[in-house]
Every structure is written in C-alpha cells, then in structure tokens.
Design a protein around this nucleic acid. Structure first.
Lengths: 237, 237
DNA sequence: TAACTCCTTTTTGCTGAACAATCCTGCTTG
DNA sequence: CAAGCAGGATTGTTCAGCAAAAAGGAGTTA
C-alpha cells in the first residue's frame, strides 16, 4: 500500500491531490523558473508525454494556468506562455498599489501571525543575501510584499495577489539581475518592514508608495529595451 | 445558428467559444439565478446529459466554477453549489471595502468611460425600480458597485471583483427580498453616485463606508437566521 | 523577387468508453 | 436499536479516435 502504486490513478501516484493540480503546479514552476520562456508554445501532446499524463489531464492543467493568467490561449490555436505587454505591467502596478497600500493602511487591524509573516520574509531575504542566492532573494522580496498585502485580512485577496505577482515574474527573465542593484530593493524592503513593525503606518505608506513608483519605472524600462517582438514579429502583422 | 450542426464539435454547437466555457456560463447562470441552490450536488453524469455534452467537458466546466469559488469539491465525493459561511461573508465585505473604497479614492484618475459606467448602472437601477423588477434591480445595484471598484483602473481587478460579487449572490436567496426594503439601498447607491459625479471624493468615501457596514450587518444577520443545515441535514428527518 | 492560392500535415477540441478507488445506502446481524 | 457489511452509485483518471481549424509548404502567377 505504499502509495506510489496506490492512490486512485492507475499510473501516476497522487498523494491526495488531483493529478491535474499536480501537473499544473509543475508547469507553473517551469514557467516561473524560466524553463518555459514567454512566447513558448505549449503543445499538449508533447507536454503530456513529458509529464507522463494523459493529454486530457494536461489540457486541464494548462487551462488552470490560463485562468491564473500565466498562459494565453487562442481558440483552436493552442496555448503559449504569456508575454506581458507594457500595459500589463502598468496594470499589475496599479493592483500592487491598491492592495499593498491598502494593506499598510489597515495595519491596526492586523493579527500577530500576519506581522510574523512580514518579519519572517525579511529574515529570509537577509539570509539569502548573505548566501548570495539571488534567485531566492528575489522570491523572498516578493513574499514580503505578499505579506504586506495580506494585512488586508482576506485569503481570497491573497490568492489573487499571488497570481498577480506570479505574472510579474514573467517579466523577471527580461531584467539583468545585477546583484548589487537588487540589494537596494532589499534594503528598502527592510526599511518599510521596520516601520510596519513599529506601527508607523503613515511613514510606511509613503515609503512603500515611492518604492512602487521606482520599481514600476525599472520594470517598464526593462520591457521597453527588451527584444520585444522576438517571437511574435513573424507571421506579418 | 442555434445549435446542432455547426461549430467544431460533432454535437453541440459552439459559436466561437470553448464548449466548456459555454457550459460553465450556463451553469453559473443557473446557480446565480437560484435554479441550483447552495448545497445542491452536481452529479456530472446527470448534468452532462442535461447540457448534452461529454462528461469530461462538463467536468471541466464544473472545475472552472470551482476556481471561481461558486462550487466546492471534496475529493471522491463530488461537487456541490457552495454554501457561504458567515466567515465567507465577512471576508467578502473586507474585499468590498478594500476595492470599492480604494476605487473612490482614486476617483481623480478615472476616465470618462468609467464615470459613464457608473451613471449607466444608476440609470438602469432607476428603470428597474420603476418597473418593479426586483431581480434586475438587485443586479443593477451590484453593477454600480462593480463600476465603483472599476475606478481603480485594472481589468484583472474587475474580473476578480466580479467573482467576489457573484459569490455574494449565493447568499441572496437566503434573504427575504422585501421590495420596499431594497429600495433603501438603491437610494443610497444614487446618493453615492451623485457625490462621485460631482467629484466629491471625501464625502463619497464616508457614505460608501457606512453603506458597506450596514449592508454587511444585514447579510450576516440573514445568514445567521437562515435554515442553516437545510440540505445537509436532510435525507432522513 | 514577392505575393497569392491550394493542399498536406500538424494540432487542437471534444467525445465515448473503460477501469480502479472511493463514497453512500440499505440490509443484515448481534 | 447500534454496529457492521455488502452492493450499487459516483468519482477521478486514462485512453483511443474523430472532425475541424490552424500551420506550414509547394506551386503558380505576377
């Protein structure tokens, strides 16, 4: 009964999660990790073989990522990893301002667990920086901002915001991740976190607002100077 | 082109939408309209016959509604129309406060189309009230609040908020929709809309905040005094 | 050379049947 | 009357196959 063979599927071992969900998670990981870069087509037969799942199941997984905003699908023309436009990036920063700043504003209603989440993310970032693990540091920073948005106190909002931040990571591979440059952001994260832990809602709001302005400018710039229509420029237009 | 022969499926006619999406929309409509009440089980074989689609396709549609938060699924025990708990309702109102109030705050950045949306919703509510169409009036009110949240300026946020409001409608069937009582809310909607159209951001914020407090209290009350375990405690008794 | 049309090859969207695992219901039994 | 058990109902998943649409190439014409 060990489980590998058991579970309910005839072939793939599933602990107690739907197989499609498992595949979706793996696919999301590949996308976020940059194995599948924006614009890459997702042919379901190919991927079904790669993950050793039925074409039908993989299709469901892809659809999940579609509703998560990580892949786009044209009818009868298949799916591809989403390529974010400048407008998309702008929209994402609108959402970040709305949810993160609102989270700071409702700091007084925050529970202890939520504050702990914030300091945990900062601590993790500090450790990653010490070990020069730039990839981990980047995700720790995102986790901090997610914790800020979590101050709003809604799990649904958290899930939505996680999706949005995941979409933002689609742009990450465009950016030249200069370590020394990235350190600046971590320092500013820590500054905001300290203000929050002190309960200084007002200053935190201002500092976070500036942070988002600068971050957005950087990302927009990166998108503009990136090889834009690399894969899409074909087929005329 | 009502149905049968066209489209790409052998059986069901699809204009240019995925069949699963079409079925999902129809199902959502049934749920929101109250044809399928909270707690109702969704047996896929049954529904597949009802919509004349394959069991596999219907399953995908149900899963979509699952991620939309309208149905819950227990592993190996099937899906059912979601029944909102008091905590769910509270969370929804947290989201409403976050997004609607933030929308009011960013009124200055709003475009003309967005303001037009607001007045259109109010106008529609007025018309529905004149015709005593209480169902349409209720949806018009929701459309107004959606327009307020749309002031934030993000399509993604709009889609998310639409989902949340749809979930809120799951509670609606619990409430005794006394017409005269519902009129009160429409009037308050109009009051807020007028302030917005005048550009009076501050007063609108205050009025909307009170509106949400009162509305939440009403809904929470309705949930508390509703026949709670109506469908789950049945089968015997 | 460039562009247009036609045709073949993929690839997609959906179906229907199959099967193991699990849940549910009613019946038996103590 | 409670506990337990069998059998049917239902779910999660896979597989093979078909029709329709898109992708891609060859050939023709300008």
């Amino acid at each position: 009964m060990s489980n590998a063979t058991s579970g309910q599927s005839q072939v793939a071992g599933s602990a107690d999660v739907l197989t499609a969900d498992r595949v979706a998670a793996a696919l999301r990981d590949d996308i976020l990790r940059g194995v599948l870069k924006p614009g890459a087509r997702l042919k379901d037969f190919e991927l079904a073989e790669r993950f050793d799942v039925s074409r039908n199941t993989l299709r469901e997984a892809v659809k999940q990522l579609g509703t998560a905003g990580l892949v786009t699908t044209r009818l009868n023309a298949g799916s591809a990893v989403r390529r974010l436009s400048e407008a998309d990036a702008r929209e994402i920063y609108i959402i970040r301002r709305t949810l993160e700043l609102s989270g700071v504003d409702s700091l007084s209603r925050a529970g202890e667990a939520q504050m702990l989440n914030i300091s945990a993310a900062i601590e993790e970032a500090r450790r990653a920086a010490a070990e020069s693990d730039w990839s981990e540091l980047s995700t720790a920073s995102l986790r901090f901002h997610q914790a800020v948005a979590a101050l709003n106190g809604s799990a649904r909002l958290d899930a939505f915001f996680a999706n949005v931040l995941a979409q933002l990571r689609l742009v990450n591979w465009v950016m030249t991740d200069e370590p020394s440059f990235q350190m600046q952001w971590v320092d500013r994260d820590k500054g905001i976190a300290d203000l929050l832990l002190q309960g200084n809602r007002h200053e935190a709001h201002i500092k976070l607002s500036r942070y988002l302005d600068d971050s957005e400018a950087l990302i927009i710039n990166a998108i503009r100077r990136s090889p834009d229509g690399l894969a899409s420029a074909s087929t005329s237009s």
